[in-house]
Amino acid sequence: MEHANDGLRPPLERRGKRARRAFRACVTSSGLHGTEVLGAGIAGSSGDEIRAAATRLAGRIHRTPVVRSRLLDQRAGREVFVKAEALQRGGSHKARGALNWFAAAVERGVPRDREVVTASSGNHAQAVALAGREHGVPVTVVMPETTNPLKVEATRAYGATIVQSGVDWSNRDEVADRLVAETGGLRNHPDDSDELAGFGTIALEISQQVDEIDAIVVPVSSGAVISGVAIGMRAFAPGVRVVGVEPALAADAQASLASGRLERLSAPPDTIADGARALSLTVRTFPLVTRLVDEIVTVSEDEILAATWWLWTRAKLLVEPTGALAFAAACSAMPWARRVVCVATGGNADVVDLGRRFAEAGLEARLATAASAGPPTRSKAAWEGA
């Protein structure tokens, strides 16, 4: 099979010369070079850095389970293994990155009274606030005014100072940078190398939990988690294909992978997957995604909502829509893959809003036919057979 035989070749080398030239031009124009652009030791020591992160995180995070369900397999038409990061501390995979980032900073001698400033739409905010509380470090988080109120309150509950006035998706990083300049704080980014090494521990665990994987599917927003996971998969399971998934309304990463250039959306996408509303990959993650990710697929809003419902009702996993992206892809893409790991990245769901959406979609009326439904196709409505 072409995909299996191609598995050990770097993804960038499997693309055309035009994409490779565009990639090199983008990296050169970014002003980043060598390991600075590759992050987390991709030049050769990535496995060591991820193992070091695993050591730092021991006792601080959960080794999340891989969840199986016959009905999920039936729905997707293949064997599905759900890596349940929705059960992680803070409700998402982000705890891995943030806790490793703080622990590494302490190892380097960064004073604990130096405020940490970050920008986030929710899950990263909660993780940084949690890590700051555990390390006794003050944290300020810049969050868009449109952020899910539940995520704002959860971040505040961990002790963080929240800045929202006048903040949107387009200026949140600018506001955070200004606060650092004014206060002398320490800037945290979700794509910092220590964050990526923390995310790489997902791949380390999966390599120990599941054998003979054809693909691992990871949600894409700014590209941090898929970069960390891809680094880890190349280190610990190099034959596994790494597939990203994003909402069809937010297909900037797919466009970037195809063109070899960093493509950017003109406005935040109106997707139910609120953790995937970044306007683009970052300057740091774009080269990693281009080099290490095999393909990026997209799913519709109906497919995202349907996947969320299936994970709630069949796997009993209270995922948020962004956390359901990977299973949505498993139900509609990658016909070549028999055994697929889906990373369910987060579980900070607005259950009232999602319950209303499920009811409006008429799920209960269709429940009786769910057990006999075959795997859906892209030509069918996402809810058919649900």
Rank of each mutant, 00 (worst) to 15 (best):
195 E>S: 13
198 G>P: 03
198 G>T: 03
198 G>L: 02
199 F>S: 13
200 G>E: 12
201 T>S: 01
202 I>L: 14
202 I>T: 11
204 L>F: 11
204 L>N: 04
204 L>S: 04
204 L>H: 10
205 E>S: 11
206 I>K: 06
209 Q>C: 01
209 Q>G: 01
211 D>S: 11
212 E>L: 10
212 E>Y: 06
213 I>A: 01
216 I>Y: 04
216 I>M: 14
217 V>D: 06
218 V>K: 01
218 V>Y: 01
219 P>D: 09
220 V>G: 08
222 S>K: 14
222 S>Y: 09
223 G>A: 08
224 A>Q: 06
227 S>F: 07
228 G>I: 11
228 G>Y: 05
229 V>I: 15
229 V>A: 13
231 I>T: 14
233 M>F: 10
234 R>Y: 05
234 R>T: 02
234 R>G: 11
235 A>W: 02
235 A>V: 07
235 A>M: 07
236 F>Q: 05
237 A>N: 13
238 P>M: 04
239 G>S: 09
239 G>V: 00
240 V>W: 05
241 R>Q: 12
242 V>Q: 07
242 V>P: 05
243 V>R: 02
244 G>P: 03
245 V>E: 13
246 E>R: 00
247 P>L: 10
247 P>R: 05
248 A>R: 13
248 A>Q: 15
250 A>D: 12
250 A>F: 06
250 A>Q: 12
251 A>G: 14
252 D>K: 06
252 D>Q: 13
253 A>K: 04
253 A>G: 07
254 Q>G: 15
256 S>W: 07
257 L>M: 10
259 S>H: 07
259 S>P: 01
260 G>L: 02
260 G>W: 01
261 R>K: 08
262 L>K: 06
263 E>I: 13
264 R>N: 03
264 R>F: 00
264 R>V: 15
264 R>C: 12
265 L>D: 08
265 L>E: 10
265 L>S: 13
267 A>N: 09
268 P>V: 15
268 P>F: 09
269 P>T: 09
270 D>N: 14
271 T>A: 13
271 T>W: 08
271 T>Y: 07
272 I>D: 13
